[in-house]
Amino acid sequence: MTKERRTPIRAAGCVLWRPAVSGHGIEIALVHRPKYDDWSHPKGKRKRAEPAEACARREVLEETGQNCALGARLATVHYTVDGRPKEVDYWAARALGGTFVPSREVDRLTWLPPREARLRLTQPRDRDLLDAVVTASRR
């Protein structure tokens, strides 16, 4: 196995939330990536020497158009992409405003109540992150 195959892909992202428009509870931002036809939390690869927190904020801005304030540190998720390990550091993040512009990478953004977001998420690992944010928001 080459060194490149053993070295994990490092990435970061957020479970982005905002107070619900209804005034009750929160809404979760999910992005649709046409390349994979999936719904997920905004995330992406870290640039060389980029701190994980900076990457998480940058990816949220690039994929959702939203500025955000990082909150609680969530889990680091581990999985494999094309035989190479990947590690994604996550934070809960409150949306501070912005405008979504569709791109080739992310063509849709939706804000959903947590229960609906949980059903829409493609990967089970993303549901665990959502659950952590919902649990923390009830405290």
Score class of each variant (00 low, 15 high):
Met1Pro: 14
Met1Asp: 14
Met1Arg: 12
Thr2Ser: 15
Arg5Trp: 05
Thr7Asn: 13
Arg10Leu: 13
Ala12His: 09
Gly13Leu: 01
Gly13Met: 03
Cys14Asn: 09
Cys14Glu: 06
Val15Leu: 05
Val15Asn: 10
Val15Thr: 15
Val15Ile: 12
Trp17Ser: 09
Arg18Lys: 15
Arg18Glu: 12
Val21Gln: 15
Gly23Leu: 10
His24Cys: 00
Gly25Asp: 11
Gly25Phe: 10
Ile26Gly: 06
Ala29Arg: 11
Ala29Met: 10
Ala29Gly: 13
Leu30Ala: 03
Val31Pro: 05
His32Gln: 07
Arg33Asn: 14
Arg33Ser: 14
Pro34Gln: 11
Pro34Gly: 08
Pro34Leu: 04
Lys35His: 14
Lys35Cys: 04
Lys35Pro: 02
Tyr36Ile: 02
Asp37Ser: 15
Asp37Cys: 08
Asp37Gln: 15
Asp38Cys: 07
Asp38Thr: 10
Asp38Met: 00
Pro42Arg: 03
Lys45Cys: 05
Arg46Val: 02
Lys47Val: 05
Arg48Ala: 06
Arg48Pro: 02
Arg48Ile: 04
Ala49Asp: 15
Ala49Leu: 15
Glu50Tyr: 01
Glu50Ile: 00
Pro51Ser: 10
Pro51Lys: 07
Pro51Asn: 10
Ala52Glu: 13
Glu53Trp: 11
Glu53Pro: 04
Ala54Cys: 03
Ala54Lys: 11
Ala56Pro: 09
Arg57Tyr: 00
Arg57Gln: 13
Arg58Tyr: 01
Glu59Trp: 08
Val60Leu: 03
Val60Ala: 15
Leu61Trp: 14
Thr64Asn: 05
Gly65Tyr: 03
Gln66His: 08
Gln66Ala: 02
Gln66Ser: 06
Asn67Met: 01
Asn67Ser: 08
Cys68Trp: 11
Cys68Glu: 12
Gly71Gln: 13
Arg73Gly: 01
Leu74Tyr: 12
Ala75Ile: 00
Thr76Pro: 03
His78Thr: 05
His78Cys: 04
His78Ala: 09
Tyr79Lys: 13
Thr80Gln: 14
Asp82Val: 06
Asp82His: 13
Gly83Trp: 08
Arg84Trp: 09
Lys86Ser: 14
Glu87Met: 12
Glu87Ala: 13
Val88Pro: 10
Val88Gly: 10
Val88His: 07
Tyr90His: 06
Trp91Ser: 03
Trp91Thr: 04
Trp91Gly: 00
Ala93Glu: 00
Arg94His: 07
Arg94Leu: 11
Ala95Trp: 14
Leu96His: 09
Gly98His: 13
Thr99Tyr: 08
Thr99Gln: 14
Phe100Thr: 06
Val101Ala: 09
Val101Asn: 07
Ser103Val: 06
Ser103Glu: 05
Arg104Val: 09
Arg104Cys: 02
Leu112Tyr: 10
Pro113Glu: 14
Pro113Thr: 09
Pro113Ser: 05
Pro113Tyr: 06
Arg115Met: 04
Glu116Leu: 12
Glu116Ser: 11
Glu116Met: 05
Glu116Phe: 04
Ala117Asn: 04
Arg118Gln: 05
Arg118Pro: 00
Leu119Tyr: 00
Thr122Val: 08
Pro124Ala: 01
Arg125Tyr: 07
Asp126Ile: 00
Asp128Ile: 11
Leu129Pro: 15
Leu129Asp: 14
Leu129Trp: 15
Leu129His: 15
Leu130Asn: 02
Asp131Trp: 13
Ala132Phe: 01
Val133Ala: 02
Val134Pro: 05
Thr135His: 13
Thr135Val: 11
Ser137Gly: 04
